[in-house]
Design a protein around this nucleic acid. Structure first.
Lengths: 147, 147
DNA sequence: TCAATTGCTTGCATGATGCACGTAGTTATA
DNA sequence: TATAACTACGTGCATCATGCAAGCAATTGA
């Protein structure tokens, strides 16, 4: 066991595994006043980072079934958080693009999560926060890349 | 928006929000050969950290409905990953305790996640890893505490 | 032209979850 | 003591997210 009996985790890997387990629930849950659920927020975020994408590419990026993404896209489209345009190079596909309303909705989701985190990070000094930011960002990139 | 258009997140809070969104899926999914699903692994971890607990206390700690925990406990009990004993101070309740098999199952779940993370952290130096471990551990504690 | 492929959608089954309710055991009060 | 109120837990039911399989439409290749 790489987590000792009463101390904290012994490695960064275990610390992250513990963190995901401990707080995952709080991020997965739809937060108060939040307008998009976590999966759909992730979809919006993907579009924000990568620009207009085809549905199948979103499914690949998010490691979800295309049918699941199809339903999310429908719901987000109903709320005009995304819009679908034709793919100029393939008439079967459509390019899905974030709308301004979608940016606002995504921003709101981030703000909700920010509030929770800001509370936990309240007594961290700037250097620790910056270190954490850099490392988490690197980690997210590394985990996302080889996906 | 606290996440800039093409750079990484600008604050540690956003970096973590992004991380949860980016990789949450990989930890939530039942990994290959894994014997317990993520929710049940979290239950085992809770028992590991806090010792024998009553069902209602587990529900509080995990922020799940008691009925959900009841079902998890049944399934984990069937597989003898936990055992239920009488609560000496309340005949209605039972104390739920991790078995040795449960520790093994939990360890296996952690190993699975470790493998994914180790790959992503492969090129980090020891100092960065140690920093990350400390900060993640602190963060998990902070987030878990005010829960 | 027609078969095979690809992008997407829909029907269906499964599994996790919460709520409402029921049962058994406990505590408080007359 | 008797009885009412409360608590811990389990079960039935509805809901929702998801994946798989099948289908439809458009593209590509022979």
């Amino acid at each position: 066991m790489h987590v000792s009996e009463s101390d904290g985790p012994e490695t960064a890997e275990d610390a992250l595994a513990q963190l995901m387990m401990t707080v995952g629930r709080r991020f997965r849950a739809r937060l108060d006043g939040d307008t998009v659920d976590p999966s759909q927020a992730a979809l919006l975020y993907t579009l924000k980072c990568r620009g207009a994408m085809r549905l199948s590419d979103i499914a690949d990026a998010m490691k979800l079934d295309a049918s699941t993404v199809s339903r999310h896209v429908q719901q987000l489209g109903d709320r005009e958080f995304i819009e679908r345009g034709p793919d100029p190079v393939d008439g079967r596909a459509s390019l899905i693009r974030l709308t301004e309303a979608g940016r606002v909705g995504l921003k709101f989701s981030f703000e909700q999560r920010r509030a929770i985190l800001a509370e936990a990070l309240a007594d961290w000094n700037d250097e620790d926060r910056e270190q954490l930011r850099i490392q988490l960002s690197r980690l997210a990139t590394a985990l996302g890349d080889h996906a």
